[in-house]
Write a protein that binds this DNA or RNA. Sequence first.
DNA 1: TTGATTAACGCAACTAAGTTGCATTAAATT
DNA 2: AATTTAATGCAACTTAGTTGCGTTAATCAA
Lengths: 126, 126
Amino acid sequence: MGVQRKTKTGEQILAAFGDSKEALSAKMLLSRIEQRVNKTTVYRMLDKLEDDGVVHSFSGDGNVKYYARCHACSDTMHLHSHPHFQCVSCDKVRCLDFEVPLTTPLNLQVTESQILLKGHCEHCSS
Amino acid sequence: MGVQRKTKTGEQILAAFGDSKEALSAKMLLSRIEQRVNKTTVYRMLDKLEDDGVVHSFSGDGNVKYYARCHACSDTMHLHSHPHFQCVSCDKVRCLDFEVPLTTPLNLQVTESQILLKGHCEHCSS
DNA sequence: TTGATTAACGCAACTAAGTTGCATTAAATT
DNA sequence: AATTTAATGCAACTTAGTTGCGTTAATCAA
Ligand SMILES: [Zn+2]
Ligand SMILES: [Zn+2]
Ligand SMILES: [Zn+2]
Ligand SMILES: [Zn+2]
């Protein structure tokens, strides 16, 4: 089940994401939240927000899970087949807007695709 | 630096991969190797084999690192922009043969792409 | 064949991400 | 204000992977 009560942790997590396409790990969220919050609480809140279709998650570099705001999802429909980008220089991660057309083999039933692009973001290109 | 001596661990790891496109985690390798080998040894040997362009690695589901044989790599040139597939039913992971054409935004310098497809493999489709 | 060199190894201890159980706190409802 | 129970904090745990260090064994030269 998703979020059922309005709490400070929930507010602060959503405030940390804001309206941007930036993706954040649990650790990054913890460091951004003013109020002292336990990591367990953050993990559980993120789970609930994901259930509600408010955030989506994916696996970034170094086996770390990242979360980002959803923009067209609800608790009944999740739709985010977009790729993600991680800068190898500043480590920032974000959602990319376009869709990648995938032609998959006929003998496989693909239900989900995760695309992570790595490289240098616009601020870190030299 | 890569592998410098012929050892049993190295042989057994390569034997476990064989010639297939199947990807294996360190844990899976440990369970497949007859001889008793320490996990540290497996991790270190995989690192060396990756340095040599003998295997490549990528992040699978559950933040687990998978390794697979390279087929066109050397210690000086690594080339594996192919996608990987993980069956959500039998958990097998493998390399896919085709390339995915990616049109990336102009303001990003993409140097690496990881594509993981998830779904049901040919043996687990009902 | 033997001895020297050092890559590879085993072990224990560690790190880091994430999870679980349980007692406590605090939203929401009456 | 009293009740209900979602949300929280804490400690302890799990799992993947790493590190330091002393030991073993592959390679090569004498
Ligand atoms: Zn950057
Ligand atoms: Zn996204
Ligand atoms: Zn399968
Ligand atoms: Zn592969």
